[in-house]
């Protein structure tokens, strides 16, 4: 099982999950009302590709399972193994 990143299912997070869905080796699932972004290798989501404004971007992560956040700035959200 890969490491998991959780995002709440709200309209503001949809573009972020859409970008994650197109990444190599990333599976998008769900648990309850959360998106589960699962991968064996580190995830890098480009903020500009998501088009979300800063307030949404900097509050989009709901939980970390196996990942640590290595970068979370105006360029990207990037994880590394814990």
């Amino acid at each position: 099982m890969g490491r998991r990143l959780f995002l709440l299912q709200v309209p503001e997070n949809v573009p972020i999950v859409a970008v994650a869905r197109d990444l190599d080796g990333v599976d998008i699932g769900e648990i309850g009302p959360y998106y589960v972004i699962e991968s064996d290798s580190p995830i890098r989501i480009d903020r500009r590709a998501t088009g979300v404004r800063h307030a949404v971007w900097y509050s989009c992560v709901a939980g970390l399972d196996g990942w640590r956040i290595a970068q979370w700035d105006s360029d990207a959200l990037r994880t590394e193994p814990r």
Binding site: R4, F6, I31, G32, P33, Y34, V61, A62, G63, L64, D65, R68, I69, R82
Partner: peptide, 22 residues
């Protein structure tokens, strides 16, 4: 970071059940 790790545990424990209730 501590919060997001603990919250992930709570999501796994409770989120599926919440969906069923909903």
């Amino acid at each position: 970071d501590d919060l997001l790790v603990r919250k992930a545990e709570l999501i796994v424990e409770r989120a599926e059940k919440w969906s069923a209730v909903g």
